[in-house]
Design a protein around this nucleic acid. Sequence first.
RNA 1: GAUUCCGUAGCUCAGCCGGUAGAGCAUUACACUUUUAAUGUAAGGGUCCUGGGUUCGAAUCCCAGCGGGAUCACCA
Length: 511
Amino acid sequence: MSQHLSEQEILRRQKLQQLRDLGINPYPPEEFPVNATAADIKENYERDKINYKDIRIAGRIMSIRDMGKACFAVIQDATGRLQVYVRRDDICPGEDKSLYDTVWKKMLDIGDIIGLQGYVFTTKTGEISLHVTELKLLSKALRPLPIVKTDEEGNSFDEVSDPEFRYRQRYVDLIINPHVRDTFIKRTQIMTSIRQTLNNAGLLEVETPVLQSIPGGATARPFITHHNALNIPLYLRIANELYLKRLIVGGFEGVYEFAKDFRNEGMDRTHNPEFTVLEFYVAYKDYNWMMNFSEKLLEKVVTDLYGTTEVQCGDKTIDFKAPFKRVTMYEAIQEHTGFDVSGMDEAGLREVCHKLGIHVDAHMGKGKLIDEIFGEKCEGHYIQPTFITDYPVEMSPLTKKHRTAEGLVERFELMVNGKEIANAYTELNDPLDQRERFEDQLKLQERGDDEAMFIDHDFLRALEYGMPPTAGIGIGIDRLTMLLTNNAAIQEVLFFPQMRPEVTSSAQSEE
RNA sequence: GAUUCCGUAGCUCAGCCGGUAGAGCAUUACACUUUUAAUGUAAGGGUCCUGGGUUCGAAUCCCAGCGGGAUCACCA
């Protein structure tokens, strides 16, 4: 395999060999114990100077400012960046100056990972720095790292902005773009905060099958695969709802799962084929309880993350202070279109869609038409967190019928910044009603709706043993993270978003 | 899947009414022992995404492909 190397790559390989010739292992096996981090030093040095006299840190060289017999460099570790000062006569106290003149100045590059020993001091320009007394190469980098420079006002120069580069080589993106790192740390903090709240509420974190023989719990095109030993088709789950409810039947009174779900559909800035949903179910509760619980949950997540309930999102400020506004779907449509669709039949709804200029298909039923009106004319208006409640029964085959309103179900969606963040129900636990709803889905399928649900007979069997009244919710973790980190693309909150495979040089030569 | 824009040095980009490739940073060499987008002087570095076509001549024009972005459709 012939690999085309750039000038800089060839040079770095030569340096690698020269280091070996000098008896220096560019990839030493032994540990390098550290006793400080960049963030720790910058945070605590000023008030605890006595304890920063014998410091060992390790990290990647991010820049070098060479002053002749002394150098300033910037080292980056997991916590941030620290300036280090390397003076020739300090790292080479004797006659032999080769460690500085040859190794440090000629053979080390930006991107190399090094270990340092020294003492912390403040430069005359006021920057807390490490005065290096010993240095050791820990890993030689063979590819040049793109350099992003930032001036005093924080303006970035030559920031790597090509999304293809950033997503395919996320490891590089993470090294050179600190705000990318921050986004992913926040993502984990969001999940940790949710986990703590749910654990404190007595819910049990569980795992349920990713490989399912019936892809239930939602309507979407699944990925299909094949199990050799059983010689059966299996689907990657599109949801875990039906399995979590089986656990409620089994006697757990509160369960949750952060689930990777998979849907074989289009990709864009809000859709990735695999994505993460938090679902949780609590027995003996209803959707009103779930609204109260989930608004407090989100308020806490945001407060844990930012110390306030307000989040900046594009040019909007969103306040997650509970309680959130609650609007029924019919009220929302009335408010934003002027039409009262509450008593309308299918023909009436088609008429309304026509007047509003909404495109509809022949196979759309009553529920789908209402959903279409809401999606086109209402959804985008709800910037501040708002619960939209009481959906038409046709669109919600797993939801209990409304306690008072005919034709509706006890369902809500949480809208934030004009988009759906969560979807919740008073769960349908009447097994005979559930069977009828599944059969209605079959009829929709026959009518041409390719999104209708599959019938899961084992799930029906489970319900026949009796499921307590239960409230359940699904929260899109990727979208929640986008919202709380001010990112407009799902690719920005997934470490490795789905991409078309690269044509590699070895694959090319095989052809 | 449809429409549209983009693909030039390690990175960010210029060049495009066709005449054989440029800048800044990065790299290399020299100078400089508290600099910080360090500085000064000099140098090297390119399958101009791939393949065809038009032409005396293509980074530039045309066609096809590959990859990416945006919008739309499907969906969370």
